[in-house]
Write a protein that binds this DNA or RNA. Structure first.
Lengths: 163, 163
DNA sequence: AAACATTTTTAGACCAGGCTATTTTTTAAT
DNA sequence: ATTAAAAAATAGCCTGGTCTAAAAATGTTT
């Protein structure tokens, strides 16, 4: 009845599985990606800036910094500046690239309405091999702009004749 | 520094926002989609079957059934059969369609390794307008198979010359 | 350098969605 | 009809990521 050989889990179930693999949680990824953005120019950022940017309260940032420190992605000591470790920078760059690739793809297929929210939600669930495919595909579409042009034409016609 | 006019939230932050909009949580969607699958033939399913299929324990199912009952998506009374309401069926069908559309798209761009996990994670974060775009795009690719053929060709060549 | 303002930390609470252990109900077998 | 087995419900606990309130550290005037 279900796809053969595929095991289903709830969202929580998958989260537990990936925790066992010692992967970052979605929230950790959000913080890391934001710290990467915020520290790009100066090389550091602060609790307040992260809190404001992610619309969380400062204590949430402090708590998460301890976890990211544990995991070796940020250098941080009490009341100090937040800096990424080389590892943290590497992951931050990866996360930002994943974000942008996904965003570009969605834009190419004509997403406008919930672009940002969808990117933010989807990105955490795109595995590395899938990102590879997406990256290749976006590059392919970029190299052949007539494909997207034609697609948009189809879309428009479809709307014309009432969806 | 960030995309102008776009507000960032953590994964949890988005979850809270969508709860305020009275939307289903990811877990609720997982249960509903599974109940829809399992009850497709007989018209009903049971706690144990849902538990086994989603790899959760029976008490988790009972608890979620109460929530889905509250929300008007399942008809259920103690020790009885689980049936979807018309509303629940409508949503279930939507969720299954979303799942399948996403799955087909990922397959088209050559995803093989984590196909199932990625679909399961991504689907909850695809908004209705984005699904519309994805649906149109998949239909477009299906109607022009030479596009995917050419893409696969590019992919293969890329791997040949070492990435 | 004292006083005030801002930032950060600490402590403790909350919630969803899991879990285990136990009790209750239903079903099946004698 | 009993009894045994299976399924489901209840009660209560746990964890991650949030929050608020309060305390502590740092920075900025005057």
């Amino acid at each position: 009845m279900n796809e053969p050989g595929e095991k289903f889990y709830t969202a929580r179930g998958y989260a537990v599985l990936s925790a066992e693999e010692d992967e970052l949680t979605s929230s950790m990824e959000d913080y890391l990606e934001m710290i990467y953005r915020l520290s790009a120019q100066e090389g550091y950022t602060r609790v307040k800036d992260v809190a404001d940017s992610l619309h969380v309260q400062p204590p949430s940032v402090t708590k998460m910094l301890h976890k990211l420190h544990e995991k070796g992605q940020v250098r941080y000591e009490k009341y100090g500046l937040i800096r990424l470790t080389p590892e943290g920078r590497r992951i931050g760059a990866y996360l930002l690239n994943r974000h942008n690739t996904l965003r570009e793809f969605l834009q190419l297929i004509g997403v406008k309405e919930h672009l940002h929210e969808d990117v933010e939600g989807i990105e955490h669930n795109v595995s590395t091999p899938t990102l590879r495919c997406l990256l290749d595909f976006v590059a392919f579409l970029r190299s052949k702009p007539q494909i997207i042009e034609e697609f948009r034409h189809c879309q428009a016609k479809k709307i014309e004749r009432g969806n």
